[in-house]
Design a protein around this nucleic acid. Structure first.
Lengths: 197, 197, 197, 197
DNA sequence: AATGAATGAGCCTTCATTCAT
DNA sequence: AATGAATGAAGGCTCATTCAT
């Protein structure tokens, strides 16, 4: 019996395998064969579905981005008020499904790859812009636009910085303290404004 | 032409070439031949002096670390008072000799490599610890120790975050606004403490 | 052309090519490319099927050993009585399929390699033990056990000695006189015992 | 002060180092640098004195041959009668200065090399001829010439065979039992002739 | 839909050898 | 007499990619 509709399953399996492989190796320097092997298929099939390594990696990055996007939207939906929405965004970035050893490793690997590959850079810029605009849409209700923009920039830098610094550490990622750090930053920023006023 | 005492010159030239190559490619995925070529020697000589690619890269990372260390020490010497010393540390990390496109790219590439290589991880941890202790030695004069530690953590995360985010951007790095962001964080943190007091 | 089930064919072709190449060069110092080329495939394929040079060489040695083993068993089957069986063993070692220029050269090359490689040494020891036990099982019917053991040792040394000395000569190997030498040794040994009795 | 007359010292040191290195590695596959290093000089000097690797190896082989030759002559001088002279020749080949792990290994390595290099083959043939003629000059007094020739051939094969088989074994070489084996061969050969007569 | 077969290109590494001093 | 400096050439190995089935 001819297997029909395997394509989406295979694509997904390959992407998952790629994330896992990249996460474990901590680098994009994984072979197509290894990824395919983990997905239980031949490397030829990976080429068949994605065209090439570059494309598979791009699809993987897109997948990671999409997941973060979905998580963020879901979190925002359950949040009331600008302050809560900022917290939701932050929390999402450090949620158990994002702030995991492999995901962090993969994320960083893609960041570095972005320095080489235009396609990757474009993808990561989408993420950066989205994060910024999400933060802004909440922060503008809490402070003047110019301040909001700089605060958004600071939060984004903190998030990325906490991710990258995580790479030096052993053991499980500590989302709690990471979130606290960002929340503190946010709190004193808002407090500082109030005080000035 | 002198035919003796070439070793230090060659080592230096090769390390410089490595930084350049890594910086341009934005990844450690550069060939020994390319590095050697840039240094004006054969790849065999690079192996002769460093033993292998791994070792050359480690030496390169060490060089970067040492440079940053020297710059930091120099900056600290010219600074009076704890507040100024924190600023000096921050400024050094974004000084023209550090916050350059290639250096940033190399730095990130090494960070990612640290996820794989124990040797690299060890080196970067040295840097992280040094930064932390430098910051602490100044911050403890400005706030309680616990606060100081968290602030140091925040500053470090901001620095690394600004570095990594820089990788997504085109054009020349904007040290000014990066420094401002960190200084602001510092200012409101200190202000917050004062206000609470 | 069949595109499946190539593996055994290729393995065999590569092993044959290895024997030929080693035999001609008279040393294991042959390149994977040369072996692969003789087998009509790329060196990458040789690596694909064998993993590496070391493994290909080990497989080749194993092949040589297995062939000799098969020949010996076949010869023993057609032999009646202990005396005839010893002769069969000796004859097999100098049979046209074994005592050929390339095979001799390969054999010696492996012997030398055994001084370095544990894997090779283990393989050659298997051969040595097998030869000894084959000889013993016949010789014990012709003389006391202690004598038999020393005679087996002598025959084995003669065989190997005739092989190695063959390497110094030009022209075709002369199996006839080699066999005669060993047979003579055997004859006078047995005669000596009889006489003593 | 200009060092004068260093040449013979250096040559000797290099040859000794070569024997040692080859013996340990069990193969001619040693680098010029290693040999030179063991001799306490630069590899450039080794080239200066010998011209190239090939030449150094040939000189080393020649040295081994010369040593064996001297030992044999000395042993023959102290021997009375044809029977004793044969024994002296055999004993020399298994004397402590010849039948040592490294020397055996080197010897075999050269044998294999002889399959490739004409120069080596020529050298080893000299040794073979000399051994044969030494044996003959004694054996002709013990048996008819034709018998003597075959016996010499047998002894030579046994010696080489015992050397090569030694390569498979661990621990110290057992000269005693090797000599016994050859002496036995000789004894029964002579006895056989007498008996037939 | 899927894969075994196969390869070209490229990289790291080693090493004998040369040369200027 | 002796060496540090330097390289060309070559080999083992890996891997993305293609193709016929």
């Amino acid at each position: 019996m001819p297997k029909i509709g395997m394509e989406p399953l295979r694509r997904r399996a390959l992407i998952d395998a790629a994330i896992l492989a990249i996460g474990e190796r901590g680098s994009l320097d994984v072979t197509m064969s290894e990824i395919a092997g983990r997905a239980g298929v031949s490397s030829a099939l990976a080429h068949h579905y994605f065209g090439g390594k570059e494309d598979l990696l791009a699809a993987t990055m897109r997948h990671l981005l999409a997941e973060l996007g979905r998580d963020t939207i879901a979190a925002l939906r359950q949040s009331d008020g600008p302050r809560a929405r900022v917290s939701a965004i932050v929390a999402t970035n450090f949620s158990p499904s994002q702030f995991r050893t492999e995901t962090i490793a993969a994320w960083l690997a893609f960041y570095v790859e972005a320095q080489r590959s235009d396609a990757m850079r474009r993808l990561l810029r989408v993420y950066a812009r989205r994060l910024h605009s999400n933060l802004m849409s909440a922060l503008v209700d809490l402070m003047p636009k110019a301040e909001a923009s700089r605060t958004a920039e600071g939060i984004a830098a903190l998030i990325d910085g906490l991710y990258i610094r995580r790479a030096l550490k052993d053991g499980e990622p500590d989302a709690r303290s990471a979130i606290n750090l960002v929340e503190d930053y946010l709190a004193i920023t808002i407090a500082g404004k109030d005080q000035a006023a």
